[in-house]
């Protein structure tokens, strides 16, 4: 995203905070395809993803006032909020932690990286490349945690593995990711 596009979005969000419907529609037009992609990743059932998207935008409408451009980008704020709404729905549906994981048998995530099909911004491309350098099982563990909203404790319980083991594994992967991203 170019700086100017980010600024426009940031301004629009500030106007939404004061109840500006036209600005809200503008935010929707600019971001709904991206945010729908976020919902679909977490909730593959289309109808669920559509519901989550609606809930995300209603939250955006209500909470635009809490967006602070000095503390982060508008797009990150929108994506974080959307991911949380989608995870709420995933949890409400009882679809989490019903399956057990076997760390020894976690296979590499075969889905093509979403970033490959984005008109990739630099960060996406770099992140994709760096995730590619991780041990595949660690990458999958991070993805599982992230897309199911699982904490260390929940992951440990599901994998029937000591908390410390899970924690050090993910921390090692996060460190490697950070070093790669520089």
């Amino acid at each position: 995203m170019t700086t100017s596009a980010a600024d426009i979005l940031s301004d629009a969000l500030n106007r939404v905070a004061s109840g500006d419907r036209a600005a809200f529609e503008d935010v929707y037009r600019r971001t709904s395809a991206k945010l729908f992609g976020v919902c679909l990743r977490i909730l593959p059932v289309r109808q669920e993803a559509e519901e989550a998207l609606q809930e995300a935008y209603l939250s955006i409408w209500r909470r635009a006032g809490s967006f602070d451009a000095t503390r982060g980008s508008a797009m990150t704020w929108l994506i974080t909020l959307t991911r949380n709404r989608a995870l709420d729905r995933l949890r409400a549906g009882g679809k989490i932690a019903t399956t057990t994981m076997d760390l020894a048998e976690i296979v590499a995530d075969q889905r093509p990286l979403a970033f490959a099909v984005l008109e990739a911004g630099q960060e996406e491309a770099k992140l994709a490349q760096c995730i590619g350098t991780l041990d595949q099982r660690d990458a999958t563990l991070i993805r599982t945690a992230f897309f199911e909203g699982s904490t260390y404790a929940e992951l440990a319980a599901r994998a029937a593995t000591p908390l410390g083991t899970i924690k050090s594994r993910i921390r090692r992967a996060l460190t490697k990711l950070r070093d790669c991203l520089g």
Binding site: S32, A33, K34, F36, G37, V38, L40, R41, E50, L53, G72, S73, M75, T76, I79, T80, T82, R83, A114, F115, V117, L118, E123, E124, L127, I131, R143, F146, F147, L177, L181
Partner: peptide
């Protein structure tokens, strides 16, 4: 947070 948001992106699709 920026990295996490980037990771959360899926393929874009118009609702």
């Amino acid at each position: 947070q920026d990295r996490a948001a980037t990771l959360a992106l899926g393929a874009e699709e118009n609702p």
